[in-house]
């Protein structure tokens, strides 16, 4: 008995540092952030935040009423990030899958190529997206150079400001994102028993049939994990927008950049927090939903 108690107290010491860190950086800020979202907290009230007026759901109401341009812009940023994800995630997945199938074949230099394709994934965001920013420059960039040469456009297009700002972000994020999918899918491919393919060959299945009947179903667990992770992380999107388009991406704002601007440039901490809470709720609903789907799927198989 006494030994058991002693053991218990010892466990605490092992987990305590991690618990303390997470409490200070995750738990307290999230709860506090939810509270701040009910306050009219701006730069004037920040100095004495306890006296900041409690305005109930006012911040939330403002976001959802069409009278307030800020709310409309925020809702638009949510729409933008969804469109962004609906393009980048499937395209990244398909490219990752095609390249994984390619790299699963035997050829000279395979190990080298497998290492090379990870470069975009491991390159720091600040480096990769700044290089893409250079590539997408209107007058001195590579993209316009080739589009002009091939006659697709007549004069240089301004990519990083205005209507078209989402395109460069999508293209560079796909470039940076597919290697992760490829890496995970490649690992999945290697775990599929070769006997399955041999049996299929004896039955006279074509390559296409082999893919749809064996490879794709066998990769389903990995695919689901990938898609769930990407769907959640999609709402975190910040770096690519901030680096490529600057602190004010205009019409291509996503929630993270917009909240940042609202809180740290316009100094509306209360309203920014309300926006952050909405973002978190969206992610939570999405997570619960995808966990249910994932669990349902695994029962079937």
């Amino acid at each position: 008995m006494s030994q058991k108690v002693a053991k218990k107290t010892r466990v605490i010491w092992f987990v305590l540092p991690a618990l303390l860190c997470m409490t200070f950086v995750h738990v307290i800020p999230i709860i506090w952030g939810a509270y701040i979202s009910f306050l009219d907290l701006d730069i004037y009230t920040l100095a004495q935040w306890t006296k900041a007026p409690f305005i109930g759901l006012q911040n939330y109401v403002q976001i959802f009423t069409s009278k307030f341009a800020v709310g409309q812009k925020y809702l638009r940023s949510i729409y933008t990030v969804i469109i962004y994800g609906l393009i980048t995630i499937p395209v990244g997945y398909v490219i990752g899958m095609l390249v994984a199938l390619l790299l699963n074949r035997k050829f000279v230099g395979r190990t080298l190529v497998r290492g090379l394709i990870l470069l975009p994934y491991i390159t720091p965001d600040s480096v990769a997206y700044n290089v893409w920013r250079f590539i997408f420059q209107a007058r001195i960039g590579l993209v316009n150079k080739y589009l002009l040469r091939w006659g697709i456009i007549k004069e240089p297009v301004i990519w990083l400001v205005g209507e078209r700002a989402l395109y460069p972000v999508i293209i560079s994020s796909i470039w940076k994102g597919w290697p992760f999918a490829c890496l995970i899918l490649l690992a999945g491919l290697q775990s599929i028993p070769l006997e399955l393919y041999e049996a299929a060959k004896i039955d006279g299945a074509s390559k296409m049939q082999q893919f749809w009947r064996i490879t794709f179903p066998m990769l389903q667990p990995v695919t689901k994990t990938l898609l769930v992770l990407n769907a959640i992380w999609n709402f975190h999107a910040f770096n690519q927008f901030y680096i490529l388009l600057g602190s004010d991406p205009g019409k291509a704002h996503v929630p993270s950049t917009f909240i940042m601007q609202e809180a740290f440039k316009n100094l509306h901490y209360g309203r920014g927090s309300a926006m952050a809470v909405i973002l978190m709720l969206i992610i939570m609903v999405l997570t619960v939903f995808s966990l249910l789907v994932k669990r349902g799927g695994s029962h079937e198989s």
């Binding site: 307290i28 800020p29 506090w32 929630p255 993270s256 809180a263 920014g272 952050a276 973002l279």
Partner: peptide, 10 residues
Amino acid sequence: MFPGIAFLIP
């Protein structure tokens, strides 16, 4: 699961 921006303000 939580985005960084959700902690950043508080």
